[in-house]
Simulated assay, not measured.
Amino acid sequence: MSDDLVFDVFARACASRETLEHVTGRWGSLTLGALYEGSFRFNELRRRVDGVSEKMLSQTLHALERDGLVHREAQPTNPPRVDYRLTPLGREIAEQLRGLIDLVEGRMPQVLAARENYDAERTPAAP
């Protein structure tokens, strides 16, 4: 495939839109963010991404692997051992995501205050 192709995520049929969805969806972004910390086995990753079901994590990892962001390595041991880690492209994307995650976490006091103000303005006063 040529590197001079033009992609436009705002175009309905653009392939980049599907990848953006994989990266920015709840489980995709959390999985990439966790894998930025290092290699994980499936159940370790499932514990790290608290709340994800086994099925959703499996689907998420499959999509990210297909997009070339995650590498799955199966060890020929008994019992089998499978490790997941970021590819160089996945690491580059996860680094950007971690910046966003850190920004959101760091700004939560302002977010919570904004929510409180929003709710207070929309809640009818008690008689």
Rank of each mutant, 00 (worst) to 15 (best):
M1N: 08
D3Y: 11
D3F: 09
D3P: 07
D4N: 12
F10T: 15
A13I: 07
A13N: 13
C14E: 01
C14K: 02
S16K: 08
S16N: 04
E18N: 14
L20A: 15
L20K: 09
H22T: 00
H22Y: 14
H22C: 05
V23H: 01
G25N: 11
W27H: 09
G28L: 03
L35Y: 04
Y36D: 12
E37F: 01
G38N: 03
S39N: 04
F40K: 04
R41A: 10
E44S: 08
L45S: 00
R46F: 03
R47T: 10
R47Q: 14
D50S: 14
D50V: 06
G51R: 02
E54K: 15
K55C: 00
K55E: 15
M56K: 12
S58G: 04
T60K: 00
L61H: 03
H62T: 14
A63F: 06
D67L: 04
G68M: 07
H71C: 10
R72T: 14
E73Q: 11
P76E: 13
P76K: 12
T77D: 09
N78Y: 11
P80R: 11
R81Y: 09
R81H: 10
V82T: 15
Y84E: 05
P88E: 10
P88C: 02
L89H: 10
L89T: 12
G90E: 05
R91Q: 10
E92I: 00
I93T: 09
A94S: 08
E95H: 09
L97T: 00
R98C: 13
G99N: 09
L100A: 15
I101D: 15
D102R: 09
L103A: 14
E105H: 01
R107V: 01
Q110L: 15
Q110T: 09
Q110N: 07
V111I: 14
V111P: 01
V111L: 11
R115P: 00
R115M: 13
R115Y: 11
E116H: 11
N117W: 08
E121G: 13
R122C: 04
T123I: 02
T123H: 00
A125F: 11
A125T: 01
